[in-house]
Design a binder for these strands. Structure first.
Length: 184
DNA sequence: CTATAGATGCCCT
DNA sequence: GGGCATCTATAGC
């Protein structure tokens, strides 16, 4: 499911970007996943319906954006790690003064959440509902290249699982560097 | 370009 | 109380 999200559009209000980097997090079988130890108040949305938005707070200041995926109750989700900005770029620049170049607007999970104005109030919204404040869209455009697969970024457990995918040669991919790279 | 330090608050053990 | 699915500024090359 995770690589299938590459190329789709994440939209919030008038701002939108194309997904260029994702990571898969499973449920009980994935020690790096918030869902590993079962449902808690924070991760409850992960165990809800696929297609919902899971938003979590981390490092005391950052929000991150996920798409709930897989069978309901399993706790699987896909972390959206980077977007290529498509619309509302002026608004993104206003909310993210730290981004000196446009390529820094959405090249990280917390950056894109801030750029799109996504926070904890959006946790659990339906990404497939046209009336939802955050939506996942398919404009028919497909990535021009096969995704590159690597291990996941920023985790300390299950670091060897090749569950990060990104579009090669895209300047909007995050600066996160995994321990190993495997081109397939 | 790379490398490093510090920020910062909440969840869960 | 430990540990974060991170980011920014700064220093150095």
């Amino acid at each position: 499911m995770a690589p299938a999200l590459l190329g789709l559009v994440l939209a919030a209000g008038d701002r939108a970007g194309r997904i260029v980097e994702v990571e898969a997090y499973l449920g009980a079988d994935d020690p790096a996943s918030h869902a590993h130890r079962g449902p808690t108040p924070r991760n409850a949305t992960m165990f809800d319906r696929p297609g919902l938005l899971y938003v979590y707070f981390t490092y005391g200041m950052h929000w991150c954006t996920n798409v709930v995926a897989g069978p309901e109750g399993d706790g699987g989700a896909v972390l959206i790690r980077a977007l290529a900005p498509l619309a509302g770029v002026d608004a993104m620049r206003e909310v993210r003064p730290a981004a000196r170049r446009d390529r820094d607007l959405c090249n990280g999970p917390a950056k894109l959440a801030q750029a799109l104005g996504i926070d904890g109030s959006h946790d659990g919204v339906d990404l497939c509902d046209p009336d939802s404040p955050v939506r996942l869209l398919d404009d028919g455009r497909r990535p021009g290249a096969e995704p590159v697969v690597t291990t996941r970024v920023g985790i300390s457990r299950a670091t060897d699982r090749p569950w990060r995918w990104y579009l090669p040669d895209d300047p909007h991919v995050s600066r996160g560097r995994p321990s190993t790279v495997d081109r397939t």
